[in-house]
Nucleic acid binder design. Structure first.
Length: 573
DNA sequence: GCCGTTTTCGGCCCGACTGTTTTCAGTCG
């Protein structure tokens, strides 16, 4: 229970990186792959182990006898000897250093051995002193890039990617919900607003008997520090570094407290100003006229008393939602669970870890009606991208599987086709025309000048076979910025060419980001919400794509895959 | 270290790009 999937994944991927330092062949990839799958598992790995032991662990794709044993050791003892030994040889803060774009295991090893660089701080000092540029194999440019990378890591430091920490948060929430003394529980704050990244977690509880709740909370096995322990507020830090506040509020203030702790701050300030204008006072205990509480038990009654419609948490950023709520002009947001299909899925034909069949099975069990198989294409050689011959073979395989899955889930033929430097595509038009869904994506030359990059993607859009642009800006949250591209111009071009833009639901992509989603919605450009799953455990990431769409004010009608397959296909070219 | 309708042993790791070099190592995903 105490050991999160993220922690297991981190240890495994560190083992992979240490092996990479020693030039061990093949093993690094095996560890990396297992880590990727585990980080996407919905079920806690300790639960899987508790239920089915080693054998259940080995059933996880990419996990064999050896890695299963290491996971067992981790669950039982909290550490892994093999990992510790590797770490002794190069005792560096790997996750800190690899977060710097362009720094990999080999460079980290060199920097440690030559300059004693162990962490980000050492790295920055060495770079600023000009020591790195003088090192063999490095130069001035490398040093500059490292400094830039450090800047970026610092900017995003201390925050967590929502989709990656949500399983841990939900696990804690569920355990607290199971306590007798807990009447109501909800996770508020930026988690409830579904921000891409969160700084800490605010949990709200209604209880007449707070002590047992607080006591349980501060003694949970994952707690490494108790920062506060009172009867209305306690705060802890968990092993994974997450700060969690727990507040107990009285029943009659529940709505007001929820509103206050959900934020955003700007939204709350605007609400309080409206309350003042109406002669009221709004705080975390309720909405008051003089000393009399006129609302506060629920959020709905507060918004109503202030003369507006209820505002969904994802919209509370004070960027027009309050005005819209007053005029009853808020959109009806797409529902969680409102998707019928998923249009970007990778399989073991390229860099995914599951077969087409396994993905179809998982999609069916999630209630999806259709999926598009969109493996990489040949230019992306590192993923064993598909060429003309192999994609035709894959299409035949899909035909075969569709017979098997008839009535359960429809498998569409697709591609994540590489956009080449000049905007042409990595597969001939004749092949693309045979596919149901063609997604096109940029995977190279991220640093072209803005106009060139924009033209490149526009040219891909102009291809009558291209239905969707996948992850249109290429950003990876906390790792690298979007490439330079004029998104507004892309939106105009998308409208003109009837090209769909994707909201990539993978938690560290969520690209398009909310403000661009909103612009698409305003311009009538259709969107797709796709998991970008590389294993069946990633399909549930769709939830975070829906959250992103909601924060961009999108309704069901804006999202092509919120519709049945026949209707969705009509939106395509 | 994982995997198997080509296999329980022998494949898997392919290529473009960058920044260092003057022919190549490291990173990307």
């Amino acid at each position: 229970m105490a050991l999160s999937n993220q922690t297991v994944a981190k240890v495994l991927s560190e083992i992979g990186e240490y092996l990479e330092m020693q030039n061990v062949p093949f093993k690094p990839r095996a560890y990396e792959k297992a880590a990727l799958t585990i980080s996407g598992l919905e079920e806690e790995i300790s639960e899987i182990y508790k239920k089915g032991g080693l054998r259940a662990l080995e059933e996880i794709p990419g996990v064999g006898a050896s890695i299963a044993e290491k996971i067992e050791e981790l669950i039982k003892t909290g550490s892994c000897k093999y990992h510790e030994e590797l770490k002794k040889k190069t005792p560096v803060n790997l996750s800190e250093l690899t977060a710097v774009e362009g720094l990999g295991p080999k460079s980290i090893k060199k920097l440690y051995q030559k300059l004693g660089v162990k962490n980000l701080n050492d790295l920055e000092k060495a770079a600023q002193a000009g020591k790195i540029g003088k090192l063999e194999g490095f130069g001035k440019k490398s040093e500059e890039n490292i400094l830039k990378g450090i800047e970026f890591v610092k900017k995003s430091g201390g925050r967590f990617i929502l989709g990656f920490v949500m399983p841990e948060i939900r696990n804690i929430e569920e355990r607290l919900r199971g306590l007798k003394a807990v009447e109501k529980i909800v996770v508020a704050g930026s988690v409830r607003r579904r921000k891409e990244t969160i700084g800490d977690v605010d949990i709200l509880v209604v209880s007449k008997n707070p002590w047992p709740v607080m006591d349980y909370f501060v003694k949970m096995p994952e707690v490494v520090r108790v920062l506060a322990h009172g009867d209305t507020k306690s705060a802890i830090k968990t092993k994974s570094g997450l700060d969690i506040d727990l507040r107990v509020v009285p029943h009659k203030s529940y709505g007001a407290a929820l509103n206050y702790f959900t934020g955003s701050k700007d939204h709350n300030v605007a609400l309080r100003q409206i309350a003042i204008k109406k002669g009221y006072k709004l705080n975390e205990y309720g909405l008051f006229k003089g000393k009399k509480q006129i609302a506060g038990e629920s959020e709905e009654e507060i918004y109503k008393a202030l003369g507006m419609d209820y505002i969904e948490p994802e919209l509370r950023e004070n960027i027009g939602e309050i005005e819209a709520a007053k005029e009853h002009k808020l959109p009806k947001l797409i529902d969680y669970g409102g998707l019928q299909g998923d249009l970007q899925i990778q399989t073991d034909w390229t860099d995914g870890s599951d077969s087409i069949e396994a993905m179809a099975k998982a999609a069916a069990s999630m209630g999806l009606k259709y999926i598009a198989i969109t493996d990489h294409t040949k230019r992306l050689a590192m993923t064993n991208g598909l060429d003309e011959k192999r994609i035709l073979k894959q299409m035949a395989e899909i035909d075969r599987l569709n017979k098997k899955f008839a009535g359960r889930v429809k498998i569409l033929k697709g591609s994540e086709c590489d956009i080449l430097k000049d905007g042409s595509l990595d597969l001939p038009d004749g092949v693309l025309a045979k596919l149901d869904v063609v997604g096109a994506a940029v995977h190279s030359l991220f640093n072209l000048p803005r106009e060139v990059q924009t033209e490149r993607i526009k040219r891909a859009m102009a291809n009558s076979n291209v239905d969707i642009i996948f992850h249109p800006t290429g950003r990876i949250i906390q790792k690298r910025d979007a490439y330079q591209v004029d998104v507004e111009e892309l939106i105009v071009a998308a409208k003109k060419t009837k090209t769909i833009l994707e909201i990539d639901a993978y938690p560290n992509r969520l690209d398009l980001k909310d403000e661009y989603v909103r612009k698409c919605v305003a311009s009538g450009v259709k969107l797709a919400i796709d998991s970008d799953a590389h294993s069946s455990g990633h399909l549930h990431y769709l939830e975070y794509g829906i959250a992103q769409a909601r924060r961009g004010w999108a309704s069901k009608n804006d999202i092509v895959n919120a519709h049945p397959a026949e209707k969705m296909l009509k939106f395509l070219k």
